[in-house]
Computed example of a mutant assay.
Amino acid sequence: MMQVFDGHNDILSRMWSAGVDPVAQFSKPGMHVNAPEARAGGFAGGFFALYSPQRRAPFDFRGFRGGAMPLSSAIGQPEALQSVIAQLGIAQQLAHAGQIRLCTGARDIEAAMDEAVPAALLHLEGAECIDRELYTLDALHASGLRSLGPVWSRPTIWGDGVPFGYDQDGDTGPGLTADGKRLVARCAELGMVVDTSHLTMKGFWQIGEMGLPLVATHSNAFDICPVTRNLTGAQLRAIGESGGMVGLNYATVFLSPEGWKTGRATLDDCLRQLDAMIEGAGEDHVGLGSDFDGAPLPEGMESCADLPALVAAMERHGFGAELVRKLCHGNWLDFLRRHLGG
């Protein structure tokens, strides 16, 4: 079975928001990512997001299907830190129970894959929990954090995110602030991945100008679905030219115009997105970035157990064995070897 390591899931924040016992919840089907369905579907792990919600409830796309959703209001640093620390604790509990393996580099991930334990690379989705002095960043890095997105789709002291909107690209406002550039520079010093997903187009180009590889862990092609969260052809080309990565987001609302309007999409829509992403960034710079447990999924994909259906669709589409391997895990692992080492 083809193993899949992908760029984004929200299982930690979903379990925290739901108030469940994480070890018990992860041991059974129910949420998109769980231990038995990971084994069944070849889910080998990925970037596990730490995210601070506006309120303690799972994020719900239904409120803006077919319309638009403005930027969320800002959230305070202490409040954000509380939820991030709680989710970090959930990750530790899952690791102590042997249900995931916390990883800080490619060798760790490969070892976990060899042992069929989901590999978890910790990612901070929106840096509201970090103080201006950046002490919290160093503390989280010491706790295993290796990837960070400066913003989610709301304003922070670090920069501006994009609203969720249709028929408009990500050029929706300012990018990184001066503090945001300091944050990104410190991430670079620590050797962390910096994720441009949710960042405005201006912020995307600012990160490129700072010399970092351009990474969008869970974003799609704007030319296929004209949504603010998706990337233009120029952005995709820049990702490839910088040696970066882009991960296919399975969220129906970002896959196709029909998906935005109705919340329904198909695996064929995933393939059309992959074609455009490969054409733009190049086949060595595209992977998967499911957004499991954070987004509505296309038909035929109810959880990580259904990953073989996506792999089979790639094969029917004419993707050769080597390209399928690259998309499913090879490109992400190659990137992480270059930028995180062990």
Rank of each mutant, 00 (worst) to 15 (best):
D10A: 01
L12C: 05
R14P: 00
A18V: 00
D21H: 01
D21T: 04
A24V: 14
A24D: 14
K28C: 12
M31I: 03
H32K: 10
V33S: 10
V33L: 11
N34W: 10
N34L: 09
A35R: 15
P36A: 15
A40H: 13
A49K: 02
A49F: 02
L50W: 04
L50S: 02
R56C: 00
F59C: 07
F64T: 10
G67V: 12
A80I: 05
A80T: 03
L88P: 00
A95G: 06
A95W: 02
G98F: 08
R107F: 00
A116P: 02
A119N: 03
E128P: 04
R132E: 14
L134D: 09
Y135M: 11
L140W: 05
G144I: 07
P150S: 05
V151W: 08
P163I: 12
D167K: 12
T177I: 12
K181A: 13
C187R: 03
I207T: 03
I207M: 08
M210V: 03
L212N: 00
V215Q: 02
S219H: 06
A221Y: 09
T228K: 12
T228N: 09
G233N: 13
R237M: 03
G244W: 00
P257D: 09
K261D: 13
T262Y: 05
R264C: 11
T266D: 07
L271V: 13
L271R: 05
R272V: 09
Q273L: 06
Q273F: 06
L274E: 01
E279N: 08
D293T: 13
P298F: 01
M301I: 15
D306A: 15
D306Q: 14
V311A: 14
M314F: 05
F319A: 11
A321I: 10
N331D: 06
W332S: 07
D334Q: 04
F335E: 01
R337Y: 00
